[in-house]
Amino acid sequence: MSDVRHITVKTVEDFCIATLLDNRIVDDMNIYELGQELFALVEQSGYKKIVLNFTNVGFLSSAALGKLIMLYKKVAVRNGSLKLCCISPDIRELFTMMNLDRIFTICGTEGEAIA
């Protein structure tokens, strides 16, 4: 596993806000490492309210979507909440076309997500 971080984390009240750093989330290793970092927020750090900020993300593959779904399941099992924010119009359309906006709560900004 590389030393490259794929998210930065900050806490606001009892929310964990994780900002994804990669612009293109397609590479197998990057997707795996991103998944590990996200899962650690739930399984190791114990956060129950998570917001993912997609400001930097311009493209992601279906494999990356799979990691997000796995994260959603880990959060759901712990009765937590997972929200996504600052998603580009293209990626938003991707979520809509795949009906994933029925699983994920999608907000326009961080402020909306933690309101």
């Binding site: 979507l65 799979g66 779904i69 796995m70 991707l94 795949m98 009906n99 699983i103």
Partner: peptide, 22 residues
Amino acid sequence: DPTLEDFLDRPCGRGVKLMRAF
């Protein structure tokens, strides 16, 4: 169909549907 309720939370199986949608 990965967009159906029963399959929405599957982590894989979206590639072909994606291609057909876009």
